[in-house]
Design a protein around this nucleic acid. Structure first.
Length: 256
DNA sequence: ATGGTGGTTCTACCA
């Protein structure tokens, strides 16, 4: 099964790019983040016409996550457990051909002196708690999306420039490491050990043209999913197209 | 060292 994740930064604005990418690469599953629309405004018909079923957790203006799949989507759960008062649409999970698959949009957390940073860390704790539960089931499960965390210095162009940013602060990196140390595998690093492998380039300051990027979109696998991994690559091509998202897709291939 | 861009919505806010 070919599983991809892409923060599209508005699914309606990005629709032509996303449809063209689906047509070319034919993933079985595409996990979307930053829909920036409500469920009613999600272009479900257009994706259906392209051969994809959809499970959507949208919200007005911000956030929003979805799962597109050629295969049947079962047992859909929206929202991350642990805080009933949290209204931000950042998590959706479903079962597709026996694999539990989640689309994750972790809070950005900037500025770090605002309430947004503790919200990020608390949200992360909820994700870790939920991820523990999935591990205990001993099933193939994949948590993929925009984690808004740069794992290591080699995952950004200029670590010094990011030192005090919520995406690279030690607290953020510790949470990601905590999640990995539970037993999750960063699929990308199974196959690629090079520095400066990026999934995001800011729209500003010609970051794409100068390759000033960061690696913040990740595919994390339980042991049962990691055992089935055949490849994991970042497809940089869509970032260079017209009307590009600031993120580009990451794609993993699993046996069966 | 600063400001630079883009999306949603309509005036700032978010990334």
């Amino acid at each position: 099964m070919k599983i991809a994740s892409w923060n599209v930064n508005s699914v309606r604005t990005r629709l032509p790019n996303v449809l063209a990418w689906l047509e070319k690469h034919q993933p079985d599953v595409l996990l979307l983040q930053e829909l920036k629309c409500q469920n009613d405004d999600f272009p479900e018909k257009e994706f259906k016409a392209a051969g994809y079923n959809a499970a959507v957790h949208g919200q007005k203006t911000w956030n929003g996550v979805a799962i597109l799949s050629k295969l049947k989507i079962d047992h859909i759960k929206t929202g991350l457990p642990g805080d009933k008062a949290d209204e931000q649409a950042r998590y959706i999970e479903a079962t597709i051909r026996g694999i539990r698959i989640a689309s994750v949009y972790l809070p950005n957390g900037n500025p770090v002196d605002s309430e947004k940073y503790p919200y990020k860390l608390k949200w992360f704790d909820r994700l870790i708690a939920h991820a523990k539960g999935l591990l205990a089931e001993e099933i193939p499960a994949v948590l993929a999306g925009d984690f808004n965390v740069i794992p290591e210095a080699r995952d950004c162009h200029d670590p010094a420039a990011w030192a005090e940013d919520a995406l690279f602060r030690l607290d953020s990196r510790k949470k990601l490491r905590e999640l990995l140390y539970l037993g999750y595998t960063d699929a990308f690093r199974v196959f690629n050990d090079k520095d400066h492998q990026f999934t995001f380039w800011d729209y500003q300051a010609a970051a794409w043209q100068r390759n000033h990027g960061i690696r913040i979109d990740h595919i994390l696998c339980t042991p049962q999913a990691a055992d089935a991994l055949e490849s994991c690559v970042i497809d940089t091509e869509p970032r260079g197209l017209d009307k590009a998202s600031d993120h580009t897709p990451i794609v993993a291939q699993l046996r069966a």
